[in-house]
Write a protein that binds this DNA or RNA. Structure first.
Lengths: 208, 208, 208, 208
DNA sequence: GATGAATGAGATTTCATTCAT
DNA sequence: TATGAATGAAATCTCATTCAT
């Protein structure tokens, strides 16, 4: 599959077309011919490069998801405060959406939220993300920065659930978009998950 | 639709059968005949009571979702601390899952997470839930209990995203279930969202 | 089936409702429940009086068609000029349409022109009409009023074909309706079929 | 749709098979698979070439009907006596039936007489034929060959009604077929419509 | 007579996938 | 590589008819 130089690279053409078609019509509502038409290639060529319609989506998902897993691993490996680590992950995801909203829409809507179909297929990959984030939380707990009474797994879940909901809101126009909103959202996610919604209860804290 | 006398009430029979079939096979993977078979009625009776397969799912979703919206409205109307309000909502949802996990699986997987199909159809109902929770947050901000710098809408989203992720975890066996886990989960959700993941900074700050 | 006095006579109610429904929606496009609804009776009552949906249409057709056959026989039995005989038949059919256009629409559209379905079933009755008219033509030929070189069967066919086309034109709004048009149409049919479209070349020529 | 090379041309194969199946079983009584079987192709190929079962019939009808409209236009444009014009049209239709009785059966039974379904769809095309014939009649009236008191529209209707009834008679075996009958029928149609059924009333005319 | 819930056979259409060229 | 004709399984929905009450 490695293509050194060459010209059009029809395979890439098909993948990029698939992103637009999946985002516009949804995976199930589109036909393979829609992808071929969008890419400007013949029907059967999709099957020359991909074993099935499913494989097209699998490829799109894995390409991006693995980049994200790699990013999380790199972030985790660095000696940073937990807020900065979670901030870097949030930043990566938000920027991914900002850079290619169609692709993120497809990944969220057709894979991670599609619990009965592709979400099932890629459960392992999705779980991997949870676990990597869980490790970050565990370290923060060991450092005494995060409460020990909230299990790392649960914390990772809350963090990821918040981000996924945020993207879903953007995807369906339920939340405002634009440069300033994207940047602010990064801060909001971290502040909400780490600091919580409550004001700092100084009195109580000093008492307890 | 109100059926006074007792008797079999085939309509209810069909709805209950549909919950089991949808939970087991998924909405798209099951045929209408699967529902009829599960209910022990003839094929066409499903169409006697429901205009389409879609309407069966719509009915199941709305029946339950409206109960939840009502619960949130009631909770909101009471003079309780915000933690107790959010706790009551969390409790209701967790108990809904505990009481009828199949129904909640169908609602979450086939509707609220099915962004491209039924999630779209019921966007209004889903949004309503967000807004009601948002109002609770707004009041807590006005009382000075919640930070004013995190918009109520965002806070509601984080709260709902955390719960949905929790249920999704249970549904797909990614998180442990059982009485004690259900009860603990209620506390975890509220503690995480309200208190945040970080240890109380003030105390530490004074110490260090 | 003879109902002496009594009240509503649901059977008649159903037949009359069926005429309206068949005329409005067409036989195939309507459901038995549409007829029941239009008649204001319960679903199953249609099956109490009629063995099938088909039988409802059969009944409507035969009721009316037999009246027409009887009329043709009576006309034929009288010592009238052929133009008056054909005029009487035309008049009966046109008046039937004038009096109950829905019923005639159903008979024409759903039976006599429905060559593949009810036209087939009632071929015998339809043929009977042809033959009776053919006999009228034969007598006119024997009297020397009608040309002997045009077979009576063909002549009957031309006569009937013209009338059916006329009604079809009314039914589908292709021809103007109203009292004067109905009366004029009677004259036109007879004049066209008997006198032909050409100006009387011989007589006129000699005169002019 | 133009297919230069030779080869099987499955599309034509399907159309020809459809004619046979529609003629044999009727449009509604046959299934798409019957057409595919008759053509010796797979089920879905019918849908590769035609959007629906309806479109197959539409195509068959329009192909033939447009040829007829063209013929009528050509005939009308020539400087011929009206009897020859109407004779040419009659001849074309009768020969169409002689050459491909199945196709004409389908066109008559399933379209022009199917007032509630395809007759409705193709009302415009059918009307066009009426109007073209009406123009021929109008010219004959202007030349003094046809009576002015019978409207051209009505005359066209009588002419067309007679031919349609003739074909219907052949289709359902109510009238004798065979070379001599076909040829004689052409003469009968023209003679009946133009000359009428009555003997030339020379004596009467001169007397009155 | 009257009701309407219950039955279930049946047909169109879609579209992923294959394959000959 | 590239094409697109050809394949055929699969599932929703309709509605005439039956029947228990």
């Amino acid at each position: 599959m490695v293509r050194a130089k060459s010209g059009p690279d029809k395979r890439r053409l098909i993948l990029d077309a698939a992103v637009r078609v999946f985002a516009r019509q949804g995976f199930h509502a589109c036909r393979v011919s829609d992808i071929a038409d969008e890419a400007g290639v013949a029907y059967g060529l999709v099957y020359h490069y991909f074993a099935s319609k499913d494989e097209v989506l699998d490829t799109l998902f894995l390409e991006r998801w693995n980049v994200m897993l790699e990013l999380i691993r790199e972030v985790d490996a660095q000696p940073l405060p937990v807020r900065e680590k979670l901030g870097a992950i949030t930043s990566f995801i938000v920027d991914s959406y900002r850079h290619d909203p169609d692709l993120m829409k497809v990944i969220i809507v057709e894979v991670t939220r599609a619990a009965n179909s592709f979400g099932q297929t890629h459960l392992g990959q999705i779980r991997e993300a949870y676990e990597l984030i869980g490790e970050i939380v565990t370290k923060a707990q060991e450092e005494g920065v995060f409460k020990p009474e909230i299990e790392a797994r649960f914390a990772a879940m809350a963090f990821y659930g918040t981000i996924e909901q945020l993207l879903t809101g953007w995807i369906f126009g339920l939340r405002p978009q634009g440069e300033e909103h994207f940047e602010r959202a990064k801060w909001l996610v971290v502040e909400t998950v780490c600091g919580g919604l409550e004001t700092s209860v100084v009195g109580e804290a000093s008492v307890s």
